[in-house]
């Protein structure tokens, strides 16, 4: 829906999944530029743990689609070295949780190399990885660690919420000359959406107003945006007009779009899947406080995960993750409305 391409001709679209959008984009970029190659665990023969690389080994061969040894620090560092010589590696880390094993190569090396080489080197490196809970994968496989990377100068961090953005942002990430952390979400892979055909390149660093409204702004990203839209539409039926801002990029952060929206609505709630303390919402709240404090009619509120290692049990995982019901409740509180009658289906 927001591809930032100035295209006045009618663009044909297809309804495909987020997974398919990623797969098609990887394919298109492998075709577009011979310097692009993929590397990661289980991405070739196995086609990736989440099947994002389906069919790519078969069509592009083992020189372009590399099954790496089980060594995250190793293949991220090796990809970084290849990027220094002008290759365009697209790394898949099976989940963001395993990126912690590679964090030195990402934070101390990929992010800093342009600066520490005095601008004489480019690092056209993409690291794709899914985060997110809700799949009963327990504490070490369900984290939302986006803020770890969004904190680091030298990195770009994008987190698309729709198949169309998955396509346009992945294309942009692969063609970018700086390292881009491309955050996918386990619960979005099968989500469907309209995707424009042909080359689509997003501008990294631009948020999107995905629903307009005048009463309150919900700011979210990735999976959170789909829940935010769901809640906004549900409240619309009750006569509330909610605007939803999808960040799309966590670094650079599009502070202007956030502030312009809150300036209009006077109320803001951040909906995030990460932990509350020091999370993405803290930065958004500060942005709003610094930018449009005088336009606020109520304090900015955050809806985030309980500050516990995510449990495996379904009931406990549900208790820990922020839900649509939590968001709706906080939106009502911010607007000073009576709480809706709770139902057992809320959680």
């Amino acid at each position: 829906m927001n591809t930032d391409t100035d295209n006045t001709e009618a663009v044909t679209t297809r309804t495909i999944t987020y997974r398919q959008a990623l797969n098609e984009t990887l394919r298109a970029e492998l075709e577009h530029d011979e310097k692009v190659f993929l590397i990661g665990e289980e991405i070739g023969v196995f086609e990736g743990s989440y099947k994002i690389t389906a069919g790519l080994l078969e069509d592009f061969g083992p020189d372009r689609v590399l099954d790496a040894p089980i060594a995250e620090e190793g293949f991220v560092g090796a990809a970084l070295g290849a990027a220094m010589l002008g290759m365009r590696p697209v790394v898949e880390i099976m989940t963001i949780n395993f990126s912690l094993i590679a964090i030195d190569q990402i934070v101390n090396h990929a992010a800093k190399m342009r600066s520490m080489f005095a601008g004489q080197v480019s690092i056209p490196l993409v690291i794709r990885m899914p985060g997110g809970g809700g799949q009963q994968l327990a504490a070490t496989h369900s984290q939302n660690l986006e803020v770890w990377y969004a904190h680091i100068p030298g990195l770009k961090v994008v987190a698309p919420s729709t198949p169309a953005d998955a396509k346009a942002l992945l294309t942009a990430a692969i063609r970018d000359d700086d390292p881009v952390i491309f955050l996918e979400n386990l619960s979005l892979y099968s989500a469907k959406g309209e995707v424009p055909d042909g080359e689509q390149i997003a501008e990294i660093g631009k948020a999107a107003v995905v629903k307009t409204g005048i009463d309150l702004t919900i700011v979210s990203y990735s999976r959170g945006t789909t829940t935010a839209l769901e809640v906004a539409n549900q409240l619309e039926a009750e006569g509330l007009s909610i605007e939803v801002v999808d960040l799309r990029s966590l670094r650079p952060l599009d502070r202007d779009t956030i502030c312009a929206s809150v300036k209009k609505t006077g109320h803001a709630v951040v909906f995030e899947d990460d932990w509350l303390s020091y999370g993405i919402g803290a930065e958004i709240s500060a942005t709003i406080g610094e930018g449009v404090f005088d336009f606020l009619d109520a304090p900015v509120r955050r809806v985030a995960a309980a500050e516990v290692p995510l449990p495996y049990a379904k009931s406990l995982e549900r208790a820990a993750l922020p839900s649509a019901a939590d968001l709706a409740r906080v939106v009502r509180e911010v607007l000073n409305l009576a709480p809706a009658t709770a139902t057992s289906n809320d959680k």
């Binding site: 309980a306 500050e307 516990v308 009931s315 406990l316 208790a319």
Partner: peptide, 27 residues
């Protein structure tokens, strides 16, 4: 037996933690 929902806040720290206690009470 299934775990009690409020047990999600157990065993994060050795001693009581104000943030967690607030979240436990809200939940």
């Amino acid at each position: 037996a299934d775990p009690e929902p409020l047990s999600v806040f157990d065993h994060v720290y050795a001693t009581p933690n104000a943030t967690l206690e607030r979240q436990r009470s809200d939940y």
